[in-house]
Design a protein around this nucleic acid. Structure first.
Lengths: 356, 356
DNA sequence: CTGTTAGCGCCTTCAC
DNA sequence: GTGAAGGCGCTAACAG
């Protein structure tokens, strides 16, 4: 029924071993023989049996890219960049030694994250890239550390992208961590420099590294300006929620309720900031005249917002591409396996000095 | 080194076959035996060898979801919905009979589309979902038709989502096609009703079904209103470009150059519309006072645009979920394997009557 | 309900 | 540079 390697061998009048060698290209084969084999492959429309090949070789050409939310361009950009770097840009049609880069959407659920890792482990994946912030629950961290060790033992290359290093684990080849803390600090410093003193903060989901680091940066800047306040005050000006538009909308209304004198709102990311803007507009407030708004990530749409959104740029594409190369072993890991990726303040029109 | 099914069998004092049966759950096994096996699995931290399993069973648990641009929420939403429907929401941790739903980013390249299909074919994928518009190049269509037949022959379920049916192919189980033509027509009718007569059109990339259908809808509405004009006139008011913000920006400037009297711009999709809005603002034009703008898709950010974007809503999430169910065989295919999915006009603030 | 027996299709030493 | 042979780990008939 389906054509096998043996069929190709018969047609090319060589042994199966030889066919295997030309297909994998990692062994010397006479040019004439190779050509004969390749011709037979095309004539028979032969497609390698991946499972059989993976079983025999004890490794597959699958590379998994885990993301928290595939509908969020934050992840889409990183994943796309990584996939480009991995999938090869050739396109010979015949599909030679390409890797199969695939993205898996965890939806932010820790269980699904682990399930996907198990599934990838089951497939004997060549590499796994974990993107985005990590959950800070101790149990989950322990489970992840164990799972990643298991993967690494089985020969899977593990790379972290936009996620802080896993303490005490040598399973990870490289961690590319965004400087969320520094970015958060600079963003709030920008607001302070403009003259803002009462700043509301729409944070991301609790127990996420990204959420915590950005918030820490914000509070560090506030504290440095002598505006830290006590814990109760800090919490009063902070509302947590998911990384979506709705959350930004609701949280902003809540912050306004808690303190109508707010002159600025800092959002966990650009999407949340958009929701915040909508809420403010619905309250009849003008941005930045009545109140300033800032986001984080600098997604493509942020520059088109009205007014253009002040935010912190993260080099998502570059980071994803680098993660892809690291996963493929095409780039040397950074010293210590850890790299911090700079976050750059993009001051635009949604922030301005507060009204007198 | 790595623990195999035989190890589990030995520890549970049963035969390998029995272990296989409880793991696959598709065969009666005594409760006590099952429990013993499961315990052994946990104690040994056993993970099924996917390739071996796929080789023996001649099918894998891989399901591929092909998208044109993973950084575009249009695809992210559909892919995420499909993945949720396929990946199972259980999360037992142990990972039982779950499918591995993975998304593959073709970047809109026909070669990569074929390469990914070959890779998936190689893996003996259980199902493949193709999302988004298709390229209309005859050679590519022929290659795709052949490839999909090959896949179907090998037992892979093929589902189309947001893509018109492949004529003369029985390889596809179901095609969910958006009513792009109808949506495009209703959108332009809305503009005509408002009183617009000179409408510029920023189209998507040429040779794409999505592009063509939306444009046809637009022109049908124009023609019905006696405003069709000749071919030269139609082309003068149409500029093609990729589905991104930049394209919308540039194309809008070009349209304005060609006809400064335009009172409305229709964009290929919401992202493009955002670019168009930016260009118009930079020209000092107010929306919708000086000129109206409309998009397509109704992505989440469109309602937050300023002014809120008039567009055509496509039920992306629902369509993706349905495609996922169809791929899993959890839903009966529509009659004839083809379903048209309605597109609903969302009239918002970016369109208004033209200035007197 | 459970055990036994054959492969699934390929890679990989080992000879030649 | 090429062929021959064994086995990767699991599933799927068959028996029982």
């Amino acid at each position: 029924m389906t054509v096998t390697l043996a069929d190709v061998a018969a047609r090319a009048r060589v042994s199966p071993a030889t066919v295997s060698r030309v297909l994998n290209g990692n062994y010397p084969v006479a040019a004439s023989t190779r050509e004969r084999v390749l011709r037979a492959v095309d004539e028979l429309d032969y497609v390698l049996n991946g499972p059989a090949s993976s079983l025999a070789a004890a490794t597959s050409d699958l590379v998994g890219i885990l993301v928290n939310d595939i509908a969020d361009p934050f992840f889409g950009i990183m994943a796309g960049a990584a996939q480009t770097e991995i999938g090869g840009q050739e396109g010979t049609g015949r599909a030679g030694g390409e890797k199969l880069a695939v993205v898996c959407n965890t939806g932010g659920s820790p269980e699904r994250e682990l399930t996907y890792l198990t599934l990838l482990q089951r497939q004997r994946a060549a590499a796994v890239i974990l993107t985005g912030g990590a959950l800070e629950d101790p149990d989950h961290i322990a489970a992840m550390t164990a799972k990643l060790s298991r993967l690494a033992d089985a020969g899977t290359t593990v790379v972290l992208c936009g996620r802080p290093p896993l303490p005490g684990s040598d399973a990870v080849v490289a961690s590319l961590a965004f400087d969320n803390r520094g970015g958060g600090r600079r963003l709030t410093e920008h607001l302070l420099t403009l003259g803002h003193r009462r700043i509301g903060y729409v944070a991301g989901p609790v127990e996420r590294t990204t959420t915590r680091h950005r918030l820490e940066g914000h509070r560090a800047a506030m504290a440095a300006a002598g505006l830290g306040g006590d814990t109760a005050e800090q919490e009063r000006l902070t509302v947590h929620g998911p990384y979506d538009r709705r959350s930004g909308y609701d949280a902003t209304l809540e912050l306004l309720r808690r303190d109508p004198e707010l002159t600025a709102i800092v959002a966990a990311n650009d999407t949340v900031a958009l929701g915040a803007c909508a809420a403010l507009r619905d309250q009849g407030l003008r941005i930045p005249h009545d109140i300033s708004v800032a986001g984080f990530d600098d997604l493509p749409f942020s520059v088109d917002a009205v007014p253009a959104l002040t935010t912190v740029r993260l080099p998502l594409f570059e980071a994803g591409a680098r993660a892809g190369r690291l996963a493929m072993g095409n780039e040397a890991p950074p010293p210590g396996g850890i790299a911090s990726i700079a976050a750059e303040l993009m001051a635009r029109d949604s922030t301005a000095p507060p009204r007198a």
